[in-house]
Amino acid sequence: MAGLFITLEGGDGSGKSTQSGILVEWLQNSGRTVVVSREPGGTDLGLELREIVLHRRGEIAPRAEALIYAADRAHNIATKVRPALERGDVVVQDRYLDSSVAYQGAGRVLGGDEVRGISLWAAEGLLPDLTVLLDLHEDAGKDRLADSRTRYDRLEAEANDFHGRVRAGYLQLAAAEPDRFLVLDARDSVESIAAAIRARVESLPTS
């Protein structure tokens, strides 16, 4: 079997972790070997970079932030994702280059094309077979986080206008690549979202 690379994207509080867990369990029950990753933090080096970029006290310049994410991405793809895909495994990953385009390109107003170019260079051009975008209005995302967080990371703590730009950036990406993206309303039930993801995965040519 050929490998599959599936990423989950969305604003903070959109339910990516929940859907990732459900998808991984279904794939494993279907007989596939699944590798789970995330950005930032999918590798040992990534965990160190995650702590810097999300929890460091003090300012990080926007371009420096984008480059830290790119460094994490380069290592994650080279040492974990590509080897798994070459073995024929399924990689299910929480966030990928679309997060950088949305958060740093749109949210930080660095420019989506530039950030995407850096990310593609870091990942040697690798794009997912499927990107699931869980779309949620930024106000609803903040409300969900308030119910589950005692500590916010640097991006979660940003103002609503930042998260509004992030959401708009995501939707623009999905509109530009409809064959790669599956956009779902994050307000729907967990079960209906999971069913829609399974149906799309089953339709992939290499699944």
Results as ranks from 00 to 15, higher is better:
residue 4 L to N: 05
residue 6 I to K: 10
residue 12 D to F: 02
residue 18 T to L: 13
residue 19 Q to R: 10
residue 31 G to F: 07
residue 34 V to L: 04
residue 36 V to M: 01
residue 40 P to D: 02
residue 47 L to A: 14
residue 47 L to Q: 15
residue 53 V to T: 11
residue 54 L to I: 01
residue 59 E to C: 04
residue 66 A to R: 05
residue 70 A to I: 07
residue 71 A to H: 00
residue 77 I to G: 02
residue 78 A to K: 12
residue 79 T to H: 11
residue 79 T to E: 14
residue 83 P to A: 12
residue 89 D to P: 03
residue 90 V to H: 09
residue 92 V to E: 11
residue 93 Q to N: 13
residue 96 Y to Q: 04
residue 97 L to Q: 06
residue 100 S to F: 06
residue 101 V to T: 13
residue 102 A to K: 00
residue 109 V to Q: 15
residue 111 G to Y: 11
residue 114 E to H: 05
residue 120 L to R: 10
residue 126 L to T: 07
residue 135 D to H: 06
residue 136 L to P: 06
residue 138 E to G: 01
residue 141 G to E: 11
residue 143 D to L: 13
residue 143 D to E: 15
residue 153 D to K: 00
residue 155 L to G: 05
residue 156 E to R: 02
residue 161 D to H: 14
residue 161 D to P: 05
residue 165 R to T: 12
residue 165 R to N: 09
residue 170 Y to K: 01
residue 172 Q to I: 03
residue 174 A to I: 07
residue 176 A to H: 03
residue 178 P to F: 10
residue 183 V to D: 03
residue 185 D to N: 15
residue 190 V to K: 14
residue 195 A to L: 14
residue 195 A to C: 02
residue 199 A to R: 14
residue 200 R to W: 10
residue 201 V to Q: 08
residue 206 T to F: 12
residue 206 T to C: 11
residue 207 S to M: 15
residue 207 S to W: 15
